[in-house]
């Protein structure tokens, strides 16, 4: 049974920094989380949507409609590699998925960039295209595949770990600093993934809080009426103390 007071599940405290298999966590019982795993199986932030101000609600509802939208910035040829890369970067290996690729595409198409560009790096939009090309090149060079998207998860992760350490060289990577490019892409991927209410369900985040606010700030462990404590995969009915007749 998971014990959230212990920190044994944290990668830095584990052998080889390898995280536990996600199956150590409960399946989501209420609402949706990415891949339906999470720490708060009985918490759905969307049940609070009536407490959100209209402007916030509009922005988030629009975000939730991004799934399945046709990409406009990336080409059809780039799309498969883009999706495979976004999946590996935040470990989305099955449905339901937060539509990371769609949200990234939308941001790039609209030119909503972060306001800075490292000297010697191309524009963020060009960086994205070059990264996808570089990933396909690495897939060919290392595993003889036509595309990064054709590789299995292990091979994909082996390439991405080198990208994250700035170790990819040759071809496209001769002209592109891999470490910086990784930071450009991850900024956007993480911002997309953790802007989605499904990801908030997974981590038990309280979500938008205006005009309602928070009233119960402590002591630690104090919950608002709608917040839920971290829970396990046990059946709650079986966990409840038996009622005496």
């Amino acid at each position: 049974m998971p014990d959230f007071a212990s920190a044994r599940h944290l990668p830095n405290l584990r052998e080889g920094k390898e995280p536990p298999d996600k199956r150590w966590l409960p399946r989501q019982r209420r609402g949706i989380t990415p891949q339906m795993v999470g720490r708060y199986p009985d918490y759905d932030v969307l049940e609070q949507i009536d407490a959100w101000d209209p402007a916030t609600r509009r922005v988030i509802e629009e975000r939730m409609r991004a799934g399945g939208r046709r990409l406009t910035f990336f080409t059809t040829a780039e799309e498969r590699t883009l999706r495979a890369f976004c999946d590996v970067a935040v470990a989305q290996d099955e449905e339901p998925r937060v539509p990371v690729a769609e949200l990234v595409d939308e941001k790039l198409a609209a030119g909503r960039l972060d306001g800075y560009q490292y000297a010697g790096m191309p524009d963020d939009r060009d960086t994205w295209r070059l990264v996808l090309r570089g990933l396909d090149e690495a897939a060919g060079e290392r595993f003889g595949a036509a595309s990064f998207a054709d590789l299995g998860l292990t091979e994909q992760e082996a390439i991405v770990v080198e990208l994250s350490r700035g170790n990819l060289t040759g071809g496209t990577w001769q002209t592109l600093d891999a470490g910086r490019a990784w930071s450009v892409c991850m900024r956007m991927i993480l911002s997309a993934f953790y802007s989605h209410p499904w990801a908030w369900n997974e981590i038990g985040f309280g979500g938008p809080a205006y005009p309602r606010g928070f009233m119960r700030m402590g002591p630690v462990g104090t919950l608002e009426p709608y917040e839920r404590a971290g829970a396990t995969h046990e059946d709650p009915a079986r966990m409840a103390p038996r009622l005496e007749p």
Binding site: L10, P11, I203, G204, F205, G230
Partner: peptide, 8 residues
């Protein structure tokens, strides 16, 4: 993802 789920 594991660290993120630990956010709280």
């Amino acid at each position: 993802r594991e660290y993120m789920r630990d956010y709280n």
